[in-house]
Write a protein that binds this DNA or RNA. Structure first.
Lengths: 207, 207
DNA sequence: TCTCAGCGGAACGCAACCGTTCCAACGGAT
DNA sequence: ATCCGTTGGAACGGTTGCGTTCCGCTGAGA
């Protein structure tokens, strides 16, 4: 049982003689269907049989790539691209906050992403491997918020004693709560207001 | 097919002559097992067969009470008691906030409650009836926060123009995010700090 | 052009759960 | 003491998914 995607590179592993190779289009179709079904049924109700079927692919093609659902999810999640708009240079804490909040909204606006993300957060309690897989993504978000705080401290807008952990909670939580948990909308005016108020909260954290 | 608990009162319905009645202890055991299993496997993976088994009860006893999983969940959820410590009278906005946050923490500290609640939030997207069932609970939480804001306005600590919806998000979200989503701990110092900072945020919302 | 692994598709045995039905036993209301 | 619906338990047929295996075909590397 070699499962190249689980613990090696995807589809160019081991070509001993003049022979075939796993076709990238099949892998792509399986990946698409996997996330599609995940958003539709949730992780627990996710059936690899149905993933293969909706991908228009035989089950064997799927099981040749991944041994089971957990491995497939971990592998696919760990390959999710992090399109980070590197370091932004806005003038003030509030402007930085606004930019970060807009970035979070951009992610949470996709219904499929929103469903998968919330479902994932719940499922991690039951399947710790999933948590390991998305750790790099979490780290990226955290780094971005840390950068924001560093710049604000350098600008003397925040105290150097500010609680970074709590700050990260304060920034991400309200938007996640409103959009992902309550399923509510959120226009630019809301974001702007939220940025202003969050800024005030952070400024108040002076130990 | 009469399902008394689904659309009538529980176990005293229709006693035509000298006869038996559904036993309350069986209903209790089923209820316990239902939530137990829910916390363990999640709603999607919840099996009524297993619920009956772990309750030490025949499947017939369960199906005599509820027609299916959704009805059972809705019914049980709508009977969850809301132990609200009515109206608290603390001196300041921050003291009120602290009390509300402690109350939220008290709920989210129970691992089973935490799991069921997060799972429920995800499942509502797929099963709207569950949302209807917990609406009274949500309303209670919202009323409590509204009361807190009203008192603060009366004390002239907050502007009458404060955005109540956003305020509700600001108060509940960080704690939910930290405890339920990230699975983190949170001591009294954290709560105290959070209350102070949230107070600053609300005071800053003056339109 | 040849070769061979990946391909779609179908089927396998196994397991779990659904919702229903039957039974003998129990237990509470009268 | 009698009655009658509930009880635990077992079994039903049907559905779904798992992970494996086999087939004949296809398509890309040599």
């Amino acid at each position: 049982m070699e499962h190249q995607r689980s613990d090696g590179n995807p589809k160019t592993a081991r070509v001993p003689s003049g022979a075939a190779v796993m076709r990238a289009e099949v892998t792509t179709a399986l990946t698409r269907s996997f996330f599609e079904e995940w958003a539709r049924t949730g992780y627990a109700g996710l059936s690899l049989e149905r993933v293969a079927r909706t991908a228009g692919v035989g089950k064997a093609a799927l099981y040749r790539r991944w041994p089971d659902k957990e491995s497939m999810a971990s592998d696919l999640l760990s390959h999710v691209g992090l399109t980070m708009t590197d370091v932004e240079q806005h003038g003030s804490l509030e402007a930085d906050l606004y930019a970060v909040l807009v970035a979070i909204r951009r992610v949470l606006r996709h219904p499929k992403v929103r469903r998968i993300l919330t479902d994932l957060h719940v499922e991690i309690e039951r399947t710790p491997a999933l948590g390991t897989a998305i750790r790099p993504l979490q780290r990226a978000r955290r780094e971005r918020i840390n950068g924001l705080i560093d710049r604000a401290i350098k600008r003397r807008e925040l105290s150097p004693m500010v609680d970074r952990e709590m700050a990260a909670d304060l920034i991400a939580a309200p938007l996640y709560w409103r959009m992902a948990v309550l399923g509510g909308r959120c226009d630019s005016a809301y974001i702007e207001r939220l940025a202003r108020i969050t800024g005030a909260a952070l400024r108040a954290d002076t130990v």
